[in-house]
């Protein structure tokens, strides 16, 4: 089996601090991986750098054996909820439709088929009734579900989610994890930047432990140990290498 994602020697900085240092790993298809690490360890930056949303200082990233720009339609990205202005005048269905813009192309309007797809995606996340609801009226959990529906509608093969469970209610958390497991069962690959150590073993079959560089990566049952956790989370504050020196 070929890996869906290959990262070699990835380097990135944020302001003047190096946040990604010689990051190297492979992700196999059909896995549900948690990316964990302390704050500032580079988890969000990792996703953004892989997706060309953040400048890369060095290294190589391959999606499905090719560069990201050739594989964009196969990769679904769910950014953090806080990255968006929820007062924007639009409704839930419209937000999900945006996930199809890449496919609709220039100069064309979303058609009936697109609207049906969007409604289906909302339904999968239990949000069909909220299709016409203004997004500012949605709760945090509901907003997150809309975001996930937007990713689903892209029908990607690899999904990258940035803290999807942050600040959501228990029901939403269950719904999201259910959906991610369904995706895995369908042969898709999912990577999630996760913030809660307690739930890693319940939710994820693989884990990538990151603290500027990869501390450990592999099946949860094998590598998620006291030792690796200590190495990932300990001593972070003492080391802060500057890029400019």
């Amino acid at each position: 089996m070929e890996p869906v994602l290959q990262v070699r020697g990835l380097h990135a900085a944020y302001r003047r601090t190096k946040v990604l240092d010689h990051v190297t790993f492979d992700v196999m298809p059909g896995t549900l991986t948690a990316i964990i690490g302390p704050n500032g360890a580079g988890k969000s930056t990792l996703l953004k750098t892989m997706l060309d949303l953040h400048p890369r200082l060095g290294g190589e990233v391959r999606f499905f054996g090719t560069a990201y720009r050739n594989a964009k339609l196969k990769v679904g990205y769910v950014p953090q909820r806080g990255s968006v202005d929820w007062d924007f005048p639009t409704d839930a269905l419209d937000v999900v439709l945006m996930g199809l813009y890449g496919r609709i192309g220039w100069f064309r309007r979303p058609g009936r088929r697109h609207r049906e797809l969007a409604l289906e995606a909302l339904d999968k996340m239990g949000m069909a009734d909220f299709a016409k609801r203004q997004i500012s009226e949605l709760s945090g959990g509901q907003q997150q579900r809309v975001f996930l529906a937007r990713a689903l509608v892209q029908d990607a093969d690899l999904y990258l989610l940035d803290e999807p469970l942050a600040g959501v209610d228990a029901a939403t958390e269950r719904a999201i994890m259910e959906m991610l497991k369904t995706l895995r069962a369908a042969g898709k690959t999912v990577m999630v930047v996760h913030h809660d150590l307690q739930t890693v073993e319940d939710y994820f079959d693989h884990v990538l432990m990151l603290n500027r560089t990869v501390i450990a990566h592999g099946p949860t049952t094998e590598i998620f140990t006291q030792d690796t956790i200590a190495r990932t989370y300990g001593g972070w504050l003492r080391r802060k290498e500057r890029v400019t020196g």
């Binding site: 953004k48 997706l51 060309d52 949303l53 964009k72 990769v75 990205y77 950014p79 990255s83 968006v84 202005d85 924007f88 639009t90 419209d94 937000v95 945006m98 996930g99 813009y101 890449g102 937007r150």
Partner: peptide, 13 residues
């Protein structure tokens, strides 16, 4: 619409 609402996703698309 999309570049105003969610530039990160727009870029990814």
């Amino acid at each position: 619409k999309i570049t105003s609402f969610d530039p990160a996703l727009a870029a990814a698309l």
